[in-house]
Design a protein around this nucleic acid. Structure first.
Lengths: 259, 259
DNA sequence: AGGCCGCCATTGTATAGACAACATACCACG
DNA sequence: CGTGGTATGTTGTCTATACAATGGCGGCCT
């Protein structure tokens, strides 16, 4: 047995057995999955520690092997565990599950990289823009608050960011001071807007004269163009469209892909 | 029946039945999944069209319902279809499939964009590279099969791809013909290597003389540099490191971010 | 000592069947 | 006319079982 001591799995199984609710409308496999996930996230099960086998779950919880199996299989596709034929099921490393599908603000992104985030406001105005509206699937008359900012990392210009936020959803945003402040934080705290998902595209480009001046690089230098269309928690209502131009020599975008 | 005409499903099932190979070492559910996926990607099954039900697959292919079910369930988690209880299984909209944060090969990526993928091999050799080995967390003596290819979209050069695959895990790879073939498919089918996850970075750069020549663009044009470190199904064993240089004017990377 | 073989535990694939939950179409009844 | 019930088809959950493939271990044989 690979666990730290022989009774570790037994104690875990007993706990699971007590919490499993056969009267609940939630499927058994889902309950088992959630119970195991909680223990992994709370750190009760440590990386590379072995989980109960399908057989052990079957006996201890009084479910069929296929039910136990489904719980473990879903934990695997969600990145919480890895499975090896002939060996068992083991807790995955935390970094596998973190950098995955996270929607982060510039501020959070910089902090995660160990840099001090900042923002210098170039201009803020309420306006219309047919192309942006079309891109968001809205009527051409839709009004936006356009915020243009230079984003700083440790005080140095890193990106030029132009955000179009739907004015109808955050009245008075144009009067907020967004210097050195996270737009997402403002949307969340002042307007109680929950962000859900975002569609983001990345491509390479060359700095225009304006971009070069703001970012303090030569015209024509490589830049990373990132466009993001962000939706509210319901997954359908668009809230903002952001176009960012990052210095190519100082910024690298990182994603983790899964099969 | 919601299909265009009553015999559409029958014809599909007959085709599937002929292609299913019970002597193959590949699992039945996997074969069924791949056959259906091919038909979706080739457009033979159009968005929102109904797929055969679990019961129809069971009868027509002579498999159990759980096997048919698993094929459909995996297509769902991969974003190819959506399922509605009481109604059936339907082809998903293309945009839903391509924007998920999935580990895809160039071949799959191009097909999802409706382009014809291709590859022209520049050179293949077995070699060592300390920097690549370090990047993969391996000993400096580790041997790699380095494959340099020009990746084509509809016959036009789109990217220069340099892949370093661990020679120990795929002996004889250097003798394979990788012209117009997916490396991932070869790893999967010839070497039975299951890919798990990948860590990928994207940054902007300018085309070097060599890159410019291969991609048929002027020197210094913007390019998207993508580096990918791919791991096997266990999530820990590195298998390949790929450095790709994409034409900045023709390629856009799409991701969907959550929460 | 070293290598080979077989046993056991574990995950992977596949089958067969049962009942539940849900959607749709149709029909009978008021 | 419409309202509700029923029949049917679909996916969702769950059980029970069998055998295959793999990895680890120990013991046996040479």
């Amino acid at each position: 047995m690979a666990a730290s001591h022989p009774h570790a799995v037994d104690a875990l199984l007993e706990g699971l057995g007590r919490e499993l609710d056969r009267a609940s409308p939630l499927p058994l496999y889902y309950q088992i999955k959630e119970l195991l996930r909680e223990r992994i996230e709370r750190g009760e099960l440590r990386p590379h520690e072995r989980l109960p086998s399908e057989n052990e779950l079957e006996r201890a919880l009084g479910v069929s092997r296929m039910t136990a199996r489904r719980a473990l299989a879903e934990l695997e596709t969600e990145g919480y565990v890895y499975r090896e034929q002939g060996r068992g099921t083991f807790v995955a490393e935390p970094k596998l599950r973190q950098s995955l599908l996270r929607l982060t603000s510039f501020t959070e992104d910089m902090r995660a990289r160990g840099l001090r985030p900042g923002a210098r406001v170039l201009d803020v105005r309420v306006m219309r823009d047919e192309r942006v509206a079309a891109r968001m699937g809205l009527e051409p008359e839709e009004a936006f608050v356009r915020v243009r900012r230079v984003r700083l990392a440790d005080g140095q210009p890193l990106a030029l960011e132009t955000a179009y936020v739907r004015a109808a959803l955050c009245p008075g945003l144009e009067a907020e001071d967004l210097t050195d402040r996270s737009l997402y934080q403002t949307l969340r705290e002042r307007y109680k807007l929950q962000l859900g998902r975002a569609e983001q595209t990345l491509e390479a480009g060359a700095a225009t004269e304006f971009e070069a001046q703001v970012l303090r690089i030569p015209v024509g230098q490589p830049v990373l163009l990132i466009e993001r269309l962000t939706f509210l928690g319901d997954g359908r209502t668009p809230i903002e469209f952001v176009r960012s131009v990052y210095r190519g020599d100082r910024y690298k975008f990182v994603v983790e892909l899964r099969r």
